[in-house]
Design a protein around this nucleic acid. Structure first.
Lengths: 204, 204
DNA sequence: TAAATTCTGTACCGATCAGTAAAGATGTAT
DNA sequence: ATACATCTTTACTGATCGGTACAGAATTTA
């Protein structure tokens, strides 16, 4: 009924939009986590039936991974943008304020998929949990590298420790994610972010 | 085979120790979360069979709540102790160092049950999730009240905000819990804690 | 048009979920 | 000893889990 994916093949065209379906699945996983989201939840939200889902995305784990990719590209584009700020301080400020905004956004579920997707889980979801751990660590590494560059450029005091700073601010953001999952408002998160900035080197 | 619970009634005595069983259940919920822990996981760890569990603790949710009570009393006794420190600063320092120690303890699972027990979940576990939210908020309230008292006593600068400080440090601890769930070492958590203390009022 | 291909819908699969019925086992009370 | 109360064991329940077989519908290619 809609456009076909132009995959250059014959056969009956897909009657739903891949991207829309993925977005619907994202919201379900985001609210309920990997384990808490059932296939019935997912296909209902995606407005397709089970075999269509399996044909298009593979099994539940494959679907989740594609959802993760989409999440990383969409809901956290601000991370990359933050890295482009001219000074280290502004990088972190932007990261924190962006997190406050995103984690308690009126559109989209609360919290962070990379945190609440599968913080812990049963045995069969171990791979998913480890994938999320890896993605969280990747964020921390990104920030650490950015701060190292800043230090080399003289943009951070000599006695400062980029690794320590990255750990700290990523940890704060993850704490904010827990707060958001519990219903914290944007304003509350913003205040936490502001307080965290008092730890910035040179404030002593 | 062991001592009976001295409940003053006749009948066949319980052949397992209630407290031991509860501890075993605690560790399972702690590692796998409420949803991720199956009854088979639980009864295997508790070394009892299903009807014995139901008779002694009620259903899965009741068991979880009793586990929560036990967790609050045992694994977080340090919270109450911290509150008894003489100065606000030492209260928070002790809270942070205690968290670093507990969250990545070699005995006992990593992370915080109140965070990872059910940060998000499917529909049928909503009550459990809300209970955990309430327990997390209770912690924040405790700290806030302690800091308010400190401010009244002149133990905190006049321009400081106990509510803001409590939010911030609880958020940091929750972030540390996420880090711990992902495998962070004690040393890493300790460094985060130390950095967080740079936000302490009067450091500007 | 007919053949080939791919998607959709229904209806199902075995496994596992949380929870329980019923009978035998083991203690206390008399 | 006998009666009674409670616990343990085995085996089971209906519901739901993730995943799929199969037939019919819809499209492209020839």
């Amino acid at each position: 009924m809609k456009k076909h994916k132009q995959n250059g093949r014959q056969g009956r065209p897909r009657s739903f939009d891949l991207d829309q379906a993925l977005t619907a699945a994202l919201h379900v996983f985001w609210r309920k986590g990997y384990e808490g989201a059932t296939l019935s939840d997912l296909t209902r939200a995606m407005r397709i039936n089970r075999p269509s889902m399996y044909a298009a995305f593979g099994d539940k784990e494959h679907l989740f991974r594609k959802v993760l990719d989409r999440y990383d590209q969409e809901a956290t584009a601000f991370m990359t943008e933050a890295m482009d700020e001219p000074t280290a301080r502004r990088v972190v400020e932007r990261l924190l304020s962006g997190a406050a905004k995103k984690l308690a956004s009126p559109q989209g579920p609360r919290g962070c998929l990379n945190v609440q997707g599968a913080l812990v889980c049963g045995d069969e979801a171990k791979n998913v949990r480890n994938e999320l751990i890896a993605r969280r660590e990747k964020r921390e590494t990104e920030l650490r590298e950015r701060l190292r560059k800043a230090k080399t450029a003289g943009d951070l005091p000599r006695e400062s420790d980029p690794s320590e700073l990255a750990s700290f601010f990523i940890t704060v953001i993850q704490g904010m994610a827990v707060q958001a999952a519990g219903g914290a408002t944007r304003e509350k998160l913003r205040r936490v972010a502001r307080t965290a900035m008092r730890s910035w080197p040179g404030n002593r």
